[in-house]
Design a protein around this nucleic acid. Structure first.
Lengths: 225, 225
DNA sequence: TTGTAAATTTTATGCAATATAAAATTTAAT
DNA sequence: ATTAAATTTTATATTGCATAAAATTTACAA
């Protein structure tokens, strides 16, 4: 008869495994942050993490799995920013949301850029995917539109879903230009704010529109300096 | 003394070379259009074009060169659409520009999608690049803004460069969603038109804005059907 | 402590794709 | 038909991802 073994062994091993896995992922993150996505090979990762390539396969999976883990981690951090945005008026909502994002990305810019590129390449941002960050962002944008209408900032002539779509789109295209290296973080900030406020302008009340446009002009002038 | 040779030989060879090169590129295009970008390997291309891999290297260059040639070809076709857009009013300018693009992409949708993805991957769309399609598109958008202001459609409260930036951005994000497979061609059309017209709305005169919004609502309602 | 079974890591190897040097062949003009 | 240049191919190197099987380590129990 086989000897009965306590379950402690498995638990300990599992815990250690998780630690080693995390070490490898952190190393992966460092490689991408310093050398860029192109430098990232399994051989390089294995070497820097002091393991061999099959170990990576064993602990995490194939290259795609490793990359996906990094993106999941990035998305989780980004989602925290989404949930911490409170509404008062469109201008401060947009500004505080943007600045929260910027301070997150600033810490480890190269990594966040790469993570977005990877997520795109690995098709992790499917719009339809209901639990996805895209759906959540869109929902947030929709809520901001409703609130803005409620508080008399918007005339309500334009469908809120359409408006939310466009807010979201303007946010994304700025990020897109940043993650592909066309613009830097501060230009990202300007384009995102200008794009979103301009979208609000399209449906703003006659009282609020001049305020939006003044803000937009101010931000734009800063960036062109 | 070396025998003097007429130049005819070289000319004939050069002409033939160009033809063979074009055959290979056409085959490459077919492979991508039918099987997608992932199927595209030099070995597959060589096989389908009835040559060997080194011949491709000799005639065109490495894999990246082959891909770039395809993108250059695609960009040239797209640029023709840009230059054929005449101005009358913002709505018809946007609509005719969009429909010209759509009819171009419709012919060979899979290829155009892939070509944009490749161009992005090969960093061929650098915004700064003065001769690039991006600068040209932006310039066209700027001209449309000036014309619109001139003809009394826009109030002129928003800087034309900023407005052109946003028009261009809204056009790009729609294309981006299409080329990554998030939306189909007809959604691409709706998003592009809605985005651009909404941008105009932000600075439209009080007379013109309702007309824009009516058009936007109409297009949006179509897409939601 | 020390033996042991399971988990884990590594060695060794395969495969696929890009790339190139050098040999063999084809080409176009004389 | 001959010839020199251009072109294609054969053969081979390199790199990166992946995995089977052998060797090693690990955590627990007696």
């Amino acid at each position: 008869m086989k000897p009965v073994r306590a379950q402690g062994g498995v638990a300990t091993r599992t815990a250690n495994k998780l630690k080693r896995k995390q070490t490898i992922l952190n190393t992966a993150r460092d490689i991408i942050a310093s050398g860029g996505y192109a430098c990232f090979t399994l051989a390089e990762l294995a070497s820097q993490a002091n393991v061999t390539v099959p170990t990576i396969h064993n602990l995490i999976g194939n290259k795609s799995e490793v990359l996906k883990q990094l993106v999941v981690d990035m998305v989780e951090r980004t989602e925290k920013v989404l949930s911490s945005t409170a509404f008062s008026d469109p201008i401060s909502a947009v500004e505080s949301f943007t600045d929260n994002l910027m301070s997150l990305y600033q810490d480890d810019e190269a990594f966040y850029k790469a993570a977005f590129v990877i997520g795109e390449q690995e098709s992790m941002f499917e719009h339809g995917h209901s639990g996805g960050i895209f759906k959540k962002s869109l929902k947030l944008a929709y809520q901001v539109c409703l609130d803005a209408k409620e508080h008399g900032f918007l005339a309500g002539n334009i469908n809120s879903e359409l408006l939310a779509d466009r807010l979201f789109a303007n946010q994304r295209i700025a990020r897109y230009d940043w993650m592909h290296g066309y613009i830097n973080l501060s230009e990202y900030r300007c384009q995102m704010i200008c794009g979103m406020l301009l979208t609000f302008s399209a449906d703003a009340t006659d009282q609020y529109r001049p305020i939006l446009i003044a803000k937009i002009s101010h931000i734009f002038a800063q960036s062109a300096k």
